[in-house]
Design a protein around this nucleic acid. Structure first.
Lengths: 235, 235, 235, 235
DNA sequence: TATGAATGAGATTTCATTCAT
DNA sequence: TATGAATGAAATCTCATTCAT
């Protein structure tokens, strides 16, 4: 702390607003809604982190967008890093849990299940800002190893496990060829992630015509399931 | 926040030459081959930009790794941004030209051509540091729109055009189903890019066992060509 | 710079009551004896100011240690500075008054009186946290001039006057050489203060073996009274 | 780094000075004297640290007083803490070495030697700003334990050892009574330190008449050597 | 051509104090 | 009377870029 803060500044300038002036607009209403704050901050953080990345986002900007002051942010999250983690948990961890339920209860064909899981992810994550989180994690992983570990543990590993489970189910039921589940998961995830990353990077730059992502996705699923080559004796 | 503060650089590579060693013996202490300078700077830039991203890379570090002083860097490239562009041209633009030649001269089956093009890209770009450039462009695109435009024009568009040409060739020759070439390109690129991005982000973090990228790639091509579902009457 | 950032607080004393323990059982959860509040705040302030200094002590910490909220502190003392003054009056001013009484009523030899006054100060002030107040005043005097004035007036001047009175008594009664009382006071105070300051600074740092303060003090008094040089004809 | 720094602000406001204006006074001559800088910075640091303490001194202020910018300070010393240490070494460690030489070469009476050592310290350290260093170390020791350790090792311990050596010499030669050297050192140091601390705290506050420090010091030495009590059979 | 000292805007985080409840 | 959420001015340290040599 600076002593200057305590030592009463020599003659505090009379704080009177110019008479007639609009009373200097009291700094802020200083609202108090403790319960809502975390959500608001997390939402602001999500938007900004996705837009600019972790390092390039100023914590003050997050606060501002949430409508509070810089100090208030630190009242709720002790550091930018913790804010980020909270945002990830809020945005992604919960979706993974939902998908897990869907999968374990599903009874139909695995092809159908795969379709649904991928569409679910696409609409719930890919199309929402949350999809951009992966983009920034990829970029900042090496600069913030602790964040990378956290993300792997909290998001990547569970997601891969879930999808591998679906593939395995298809193999067990004779619906799929006997491929390696974990590797196939990579192949499945790849284009979707690519689509999302593209949306959140170049796609956000008002640029050349991107293909319609939904169509690309449909094509991808079709190709992966049935191949690019025509079936020799496809009756 | 600067990443350097948070990310306690994974062991700064001992910059000291072994004592007694001839200090890496630059041809002449002050008069090194000036023609080599740009290449050295570009090589250093490539490594560092890929490792840490554009914003988080300090220009002094680039200079240092190239063995020159900070001022010298600015003698060759008027700003960090121009350095980046030069590095992209050096690392990627030339590879695209090479591929273009290969494709236009190829005479065999398109399936085979696709295999070769993708393997070429994988070994020449994917496995080299140059693969990481895309990672950082995705992350920084929105923060540095001019860089994004440049990259799209110089790299993305040409690459997509090239691959679309291959797909079209396959369709024309009856080897492929009549899909949309541009969309199929996205599907093709997706998993490869994903693989590369992963290698350059989480893969660089000493983490959980990544699948072997080459195997994943092979599987991907196989799946895309022949599908995940077994062929009904695959003689 | 805030010291808290640099000085990784020597193990924040676990603030949690032992689980299951009755949470220190304040008489009534909300309705504690209001009369005790000022004392509790003053006691907390004394401890913390001595430990960390005036500027480096956060007012919230004082409140916390006293078991109230930050706002409550400001209900009793309008600023950190006023809190400090109140704490000084509570801790030191009263002791000076006691000593004054002792001196004016004393009837024996002045040597003896001096012994007693000094021992009194040592046990009542030097050994108690109150001794540390002088340490912080010395350090912060120039940053908080108003506090310095206050302290000089309230503590330093009266103490010196009191001791000068004792010396004068010794001279008047032929027990002491005819020295300057005020200057001799400085000499007397010096080592005691030094001892106290040391205790509250380096002595609190778990360091090299400090000499036993009480022994040092005894030696000091002995030397000042009888000198370091042996008496030529000390029968 | 913030991208905003790199991304060329949308339309840099034309930097033209108002025509006729004095060309905006080029920021600073940007002098270059590398060799002199450390001394200048250390001198500024000494003054300010002594005046305001370690925590309350802003590093920018140090730079300013040395006539350089904030950034330049960090070019020479990587942190405020390191600046402080360098300043201590510059100001105190060298004096201790000098005194050591004086003592080991001295041949006369120990009484005389003690006089000279103490006067030396008084003029070289006590009267110079360097004397204030001890003041701040006492105040900040508990907030900056690492600094405290450093200071003890570098200054306190060597000083005490040196003085103890002198006392021992006096005892060995029969000039002093057989007292404990280390404890006597404390007694010797006490009032001198007190004098110095006082000078640098309350004494700097334009206050009540302080006694003349030199006189107090002389009296102290006289008393310690010959005692306050008159000699029974002194001539 | 090459250097590296110097600059200064800027980013995170802290904390005395206020005030709605 | 008591709370504790909210504010915002500071303080340390970083780094792209300039420019005297």
């Amino acid at each position: 702390m600076s002593p200057r803060k305590n030592a009463p500044s020599v003659a505090p300038p009379a704080e009177l607003p110019a008479p007639g002036a609009p009373a200097r607009k009291a700094p802020a209403p200083r609202q108090r809604r403790k319960e809502a704050r975390p959500q608001e901050l997390l939402a602001a953080a999500l938007e900004l982190f996705v837009e600019k990345g972790f390092a390039a986002t100023r914590s003050e900007e997050v606060a501002q967008r949430a409508g509070v002051s810089k100090g208030t942010l630190y009242l709720y999250y002790p550091s930018k890093e913790e804010l980020f983690k909270a945002m990830v948990r809020e945005s992604l961890s919960s979706r993974i849990a939902e998908a897990s339920v869907l999968i374990s209860q599903y009874e139909g064909a695995t092809t159908e299940l795969l379709h649904r899981v991928m569409h679910l992810w696409w609409t719930e994550v890919g199309l929402s800002p949350a999809g951009g989180i992966t983009k920034i994690m990829m970029a900042e992983a090496r600069n913030f190893p602790e964040l990378a570990s956290f993300f792997h543990e909290e998001v990547i590993a569970p997601t891969q496990a879930l999808l591998a489970q679906v593939i395995q189910r298809g193999i067990d039921r004779g619906e799929f060829r006997p491929v390696s589940p974990m590797m196939t998961v990579q192949v499945l995830i790849g284009p979707m992630l690519h689509l999302v990353l593209f949306q959140h990077s170049f796609g956000a730059c008002a640029h050349l015509p991107c293909e319609n992502p939904a169509d690309v996705l449909a094509l991808e699923i079709d190709l992966l399931l049935h191949g690019l080559c025509p079936r020799p004796a496809a009756g």
